[in-house]
Every structure is written in structure tokens, then in C-alpha cells.
Write a protein that binds this DNA or RNA. Structure first.
Lengths: 114, 114
DNA sequence: CTCAGTGTTCGATGGCCATCGTACAGTGCT
DNA sequence: AGCACTGTACGATGGCCATCGAACACTGAG
């Protein structure tokens, strides 16, 4: 029925951590990984909620990918929303930037990769 | 004689990497460590060349400390200069900030530690 | 209901890294 | 020369983490 009101989701929604509750060390550790940097950049190149987890092109299996998204959620970098079987993603640009000014911009700059 | 000209140092000078040659991932990995963050903060709280390696109050032995300074050098964060038996340190504020704007400021902010 | 697709969880594994103790090399002082 | 101090190099160790395969749960479609 494509019902938006009677959600009745029989699946635990993803647990999020707000950037304001994230220690600096956690944020830096989350960003200090090539796969996660790639995920963030891919995410930034598309509109919010445009990509589900399986749409990301990274050289790891589903299990590892799921793990990486968990790390990104805990670091306040990514928000997830369930829609059907898919789990849609959004980069928490403004909130994360308010907590760690400039850090996300730095990560998204293509020239610092060398 | 406390000669400044006839240095004749029989010791290999420390190898440095300029921040411009440092990939983002290297910089983030270097900063994603509690001991190194402490070293950087201690360094920032004193004038340039004021501290030798042994002066830092970090809960690790000499060997580990030496390793950490090596990592910081490779990440373009610290410059070292030999003076006698001591090895003096300087935080490469401007150069590093030119390459990764805001990253060092973020690391030095005391409130993001939580 | 069955099936294909999506994502999480679990246990196991391999590798990287922070740390330590020790030995060693310079340096300056007596 | 002898000594105390500073820092590095080396080998070993322990722990953490990224990854995988497999099993499982949920979803929407046929």
C-alpha cells in the first residue's frame, strides 16, 4: 500500500551519534581509513538519501562495508534511514562541520590525496 | 667552546617531510593517536625549540616516544634540531596549516576532547 | 508462499602498530 | 678517560582492527 504513516517496521532502526557527542579522537580515527574516505566522498558527490549502502563502489565485501558505515555513524558523519529493504545514507555536513569546523571540507578536497 | 659554526656533528640529522608532500591519510593517521595529540598540545603550549624530547610528559617509554616523534616528522607536523645531546622540537604551525587548513587548530582546541 | 536482494551479526584470521627492554651511539662534563 | 644523559635501532610481544565467509533477518515482487 506504500503507506508512509503505518510504518510498523519490524527492524531495529540504525543507532546514531550526534557529532556534538563525538570526541576528536573518534572523528580522526574514523577518517583515517581509505575506504571510509572514499565512502564519504562518494556520498558527498550525490544528493542526500540518493545512495543505499550497496551502491557504493568500494573494494570490500558487504560485511566490511556494513562495519564501515557503523563506524561512520558512531563518528557522527553519516545518518541512515530505512526505506524498504534499502538503507539510505546522508552526509551530516552542517552538524559535523559545526562540531569540527573545516575537517569535512578537508576530507572532501581532492588535491590533498596526492 | 660552544661553537655555533664548527658544528661537525657526528650524528645523522633528523629526516623531515614537508607538509606539502604529506597525503591526507598520513596526516589523519598521525593525529589519530592520543599520545601524539598530547605531544602536539604540549609543544604548542611552549615557544619554538623550547622542549627536547625527554621534556614531554607522556605515559610511554623512551623508545615509544622516539617512534612517535618519527611519525610526527613524517607527517610534517614537527621539525627537529639537534643541540648538543638534546633534540629540540618545533611545531610546524604555518606550513602545516597551509597544507591542511584548520586541522591543527582543531587538534589544539581543548573542548573537543570530551 | 517462494524468491531474489539488502544489510547485519558472528567467529575466525591476518596484519599492522603501539609498546617494551635492551643495546648502542653521540654529547658534554669532570 | 670515564661517566651520566639523551635519543635511536632492533627484536619481540600483545592488542586492536579491517576483512572475509557464512548464517540470519527483513523487504518487496512475482
Amino acid at each position: 500500500m506504500t503507506d508512509q504513516v503505518e510504518g510498523a517496521s519490524h527492524r531495529p532502526p540504525p543507532v546514531h551519534t550526534h557529532p556534538d557527542d563525538v570526541p576528536l579522537l573518534t572523528a580522526l580515527s574514523a577518517l583515517a581509513d581509505p575506504v571510509r574516505i572514499q565512502l564519504i566522498r562518494d556520498l558527498a558527490s550525490r544528493p542526500d538519501w540518493a545512495l543505499s549502502c550497496s551502491n557504493f563502489d568500494v573494494p570490500v565485501g558487504r560485511a566490511a562495508k556494513s562495519h564501515h558505515f557503523s563506524v561512520l555513524r558512531d563518528a557522527g558523519l553519516v545518518e541512515q534511514r530505512d526505506q524498504g529493504a534499502k538503507r539510505l545514507n546522508r552526509l551530516r555536513r552542517e552538524e559535523f562541520d559545526a562540531r569540527f569546523p573545516g575537517l569535512l571540507d578537508l576530507t572532501l578536497r581532492p588535491d590533498v590525496t596526492e
